[in-house]
Design a protein around this nucleic acid. Structure first.
Lengths: 345, 345
DNA sequence: TTGTATGCGTTATCAA
DNA sequence: TTGATAACGCATACAA
């Protein structure tokens, strides 16, 4: 089976032999196998209408030559496979995998593909990603922190679904989270249980800046709870940050009876700090998290939290893509976290 | 600007107006704008060599017509963008996001794209995914449970990197985990601390069946530790499963002083069960996990575990892809977990 | 069963 | 500045 010889031959016959590694094409295989490129196509795709002998021969030659069909050539001539680009800030932060899973599942249901890209919490990478990925896909779903105005020049013509960024955006489809309603539910829960001396651990947050704190203060005002400096502390958005923030909060207000945390990770840090300080949770101090990560069930006691259906969030994003691809600009969809009472309240 | 009229016109002029939603092409825009498709191309890509007036006009028409460049048409004629398909069993299981992050990061470094697919723990989806995704990408990285023999017909010609499946595989590139060495290190640690009555919670595991148990028994034999029925229990691969398994183990061997768990999630379940049973960890019973999930630091006490660098695992997989794409079949790479002593031993 | 010719949507070359 | 023409790699009628 002079296939190896065939390969040599093919290489030599290449006219512009100088150019960089030319890709092996259907015609190269055809030439090497001494058939038409048509026959090769048939052999590769396993359609009938071909002599088993030649098919095998062609297949052998193809393997020798390391032939791989070009997805572009194919895509051009076959019904398009829809592909969606997904941009998230971080794949490891336990908030996002569930969201990504939702996107992938909903996409899969439609036989769509998902290209996942992560900015690795580097905001400066967002814009470049929007542009480059946007050129390679049929639509984009993005957990993007940049405001519309900055985004626009990079978006080009790609249909875009923005997630969790308030309703400031109008050119693109939106899936949003009603954080204010969530915080409000958490506060109400604490108030219902008789808490009045409630503190908050807040964090920097580009997507919904100040929302938690603002809502907190609103509710505090509505119920005439004690409020002045010291009831709200800022912390790093991490367990360690939550621990430090709790310590600061406890130092300033040792008589507090409940804390609302920016999110679950922060709350878990606060929980550990409380334990270290000898503060019993929930007896001495109740604690409410936010996000509803699955890890809240692994800590002790399990964390009461405002549970957001992150998987659903992803599914809805794909739903919005669907609309966009159909030529509609759908109205925003808003998801509200639901209170999940466990062991810390 | 009779662009809307232009659109009508274009639609009407389409010969086979019957066919399903034809995609808007460069030529459609050209016709509507009254220029050559070449000029449209120039306008879209913002190359110079075009009159600003016509450029603007063309751009307007393109927008009216909702024109989007075809990635296939482009891909055919521009230097290829390498894309890697990634198949994992589950995006939500905290083991995988770190792995995925490693793959994405290493791919990104090379300006490659990553298409992520999940089998959602449904083994039966693996093969179909290998085939379909394999056709759309330049290489595949797979956390695949099927043995080579079953896999082969579905692989086709796509370069494939298999992760964590023992070294039974030869046609494909491999990144493996030396689980035996990990378990051995964990056992040795316990033995060094004077433990002799050690139990194990094992789970079903397709990728490395029996490895933990086998290694456990080897070490037990080498050190003449007590061994008979009851020292190894099987459990579901989850915190709940770990809890149930610990209860069973404790019921059978109430005098045990240490437990090696299948993985961290199982170990965390065991930890909770121990607490419920009034067994102090680590004083009454030490506990060693496996995987090194970041959640081990969130439980109390933090879990001693055999830490596997999952991110690195992903990076190495891309490294293997690199070799494969260069035409080499690289030797397997083996990663060994390292003992991470925290609060449960 | 096999080969020829054509078109998919884009960019590049070159002439006008 | 613009346009005609030729690739790019593949699949599919249609002819042989």
């Amino acid at each position: 089976m002079g296939s190896v010889a065939g390969q040599q031959e093919t290489e030599d016959q290449r006219a512009g032999g100088v150019r960089t590694v030319k890709r092996v094409t259907l015609r190269d295989v055809a030439q090497a196998a001494g058939v038409s490129h048509q026959t090769v196509s048939r052999a590769i795709n396993g359609k009938g209408e071909i002599d088993p002998g030649t098919q095998q021969r062609v297949l052998d030659v193809a393997r020798q030559l390391r032939y791989r069909p070009s997805r572009f050539g194919r895509g051009l001539v076959r019904p398009d496979v829809v592909s969606v680009g997904l941009i998230v800030p971080d794949v490891v932060n336990p908030f996002f995998p569930e969201f990504v899973a939702g996107v992938i599942a909903a996409a899969d249901e439609r036989d769509w593909q998902v290209l996942v890209a992560s900015t690795e919490n580097d905001r400066s990478r967002e814009l470049a990603l929007v542009r480059s990925l946007g050129q390679q896909v049929d639509a984009l779903v993005g957990y993007i922190s940049h405001p519309d105005a900055q985004l626009e020049p990079y978006v080009g013509t790609v249909p875009l679904v923005l997630v969790d960024r308030g309703l400031d955006s109008s050119n693109h489809a939106l899936v949003d989270i009603d954080t204010a309603a969530g915080i409000r539910a958490g506060m109400q829960h604490l108030i219902d249980r008789g808490h009045r001396r409630i503190g908050m651990i807040d964090c920097e947050c580009v997507s919904a800046p100040m929302v938690r704190r603002r809502t907190f203060l609103e509710v505090v005002g509505e119920h005439a709870l004690p409020v002045d400096e010291g009831w709200v502390v800022m912390g790093e958005q991490s367990p360690a940050g939550g621990a430090a923030a709790f310590e600061a909060l406890y130092a300033a207000r040792p008589d507090l009876t409940a804390v609302v945390a920016f999110n679950d990770l922060v709350a878990i840090g606060a929980l550990r700090a409380a334990r270290r300080l000898g503060v019993q949770v929930p007896d001495d101090c109740a604690l409410v998290g936010y996000d509803g990560l699955s890890v809240v069930d692994l800590v002790d006691p399990p964390l009461t939290t405002l549970h957001l259906d992150k998987r659903r969030l992803g599914e809805l994003a794909i739903h919005q893509v669907d609309q966009l691809l159909a030529g509609e600009l759908p109205p925003p969809i808003v998801l509200t976290p639901s209170l999940n009472v466990r062991g810390t309240t």
